[in-house]
Design a protein around this nucleic acid. Structure first.
Lengths: 201, 201
DNA sequence: GCTGCGATTGACGGGTCAGTCAAGGCTGGA
DNA sequence: TCCAGCCTTGACTGACCCGTCAATCGCAGC
């Protein structure tokens, strides 16, 4: 694919997407108006509709852009020759870093999509399931080598693992101030330690 | 408090609340109109505003009604003389049964409140935190007796535990058909087995 | 039967907002 | 310089919906 021939310098489409992340994170998808996105982007109202079919399409684009990267990463981690626990640690670290790098985007993805059972969560269910499936494959590998117990199914373990991660992110989302670097670093380890090690002594 | 002197037989307030659960679960809080609630309840539009200050107040009432019971139960379980793991199992079972008994209500509570970081989740944060706090107390007790490792903090463990439970419910919420009894029964054990036992062999 | 009052009704006001569209701007090629 | 075509603008349309309110209902007590 050749470099895009047009788009002189300011990629308005990108500017609109970035503005939408901010606005969706601040006000929520439903509460915000398309005019808010346009204002945040410093662009006319109608331009949003030049680049996107609808308000929904803006969120769809944001979600897919990031989610597909994540699914890809999970798949690639599983290709590596590593203990399953290390693979999970890498995944937890990736999601953790995603939040650290762009908390607004992750907030939007989690709050407006992966947990929105009546709207975008339903339309993107196949994408979400794909991520679960790949996590389950990692767990399954760990069970095959005897590294993990088989007390629960790989699918259940994957769900639990992802549930813990989302809950950690949710805490951060609800938190008032910014999160410190130490907390980000610690979280990766705690997530894996909890899910793999368990509470029992 | 004496029995309410009025309210001949059909408690319209209750009917409206029950109808709201159905409608909120089916369409989501934002997507549904107050008229939908009134229609579902078989009641005039204005009556909703006779019993509730606003559409928001209907959801607040539904949430608090159930959430306060849950917080109370968690507190009482902790009073019992049981291993911490059994306490957690009881809590998981209670939430599990809550969903089994009234999936629509639990769906509404989770989707529209505990995970709604931009609206009701924020206003009810203190209530939600209270539940976390009580779970953490249970874990802390388990650590004091040596039953649980102290590899993670009680607060983190409580969060992880609750995260797994919510993720299980979320799966059910997203599922198309009804959930079988066996699956409900199995879930309680799997949740505790995962969080307490861990994946490592 | 009459009166008082809470329960109930549903049309309406006022405001909001997604998406459309016609017009104007800008740029690069001829 | 001129033209063609995409980029950009923002007022406008049509629809939607929350909450109000004036009117009506129906029961309880007298």
């Amino acid at each position: 694919m050749a470099a895009r021939p047009r788009a002189p310098v300011p990629d308005k489409r990108r500017i609109i997407l970035d503005a939408a992340v901010k606005v969706f994170a601040r006000q929520g998808f439903t509460q915000c108006r398309v005019a808010d996105i346009a204002d945040e982007a410093g662009v006319a109202y109608g331009l949003v509709y030049h680049y996107f079919r609808s308000k929904d399409a803006v969120l769809d684009t944001l979600f897919l852009e990031r989610w597909e990267v994540m699914v890809e990463v999970i798949g690639q981690v599983d290709q590596q020759d590593l203990p399953a626990r290390e693979k999970l640690r890498y995944v937890a670290g990736f999601i953790d870093d995603s939040y650290r790098h762009d908390p607004d985007l992750m907030k939007v993805i989690i709050v407006e999509v992966t947990r929105a059972a009546n709207s975008f969560g339903r339309t993107h269910m196949p994408d979400i399931q794909r991520a679960y499936g790949r996590l389950a494959t990692i767990v399954e590998g760990g069970m095959r080598t005897g590294e993990f117990r088989t007390a629960v199914t790989p699918a259940f373990a994957a769900m639990a693992f992802y549930g813990v991660i989302e809950q950690v992110l949710t805490q951060w989302i609800f938190a008032e101030g910014p999160i410190g670097d130490e907390e980000f670093d610690r979280a990766k380890d705690l997530i894996v330690e909890t899910v793999c090690g368990g509470l029992n002594g």
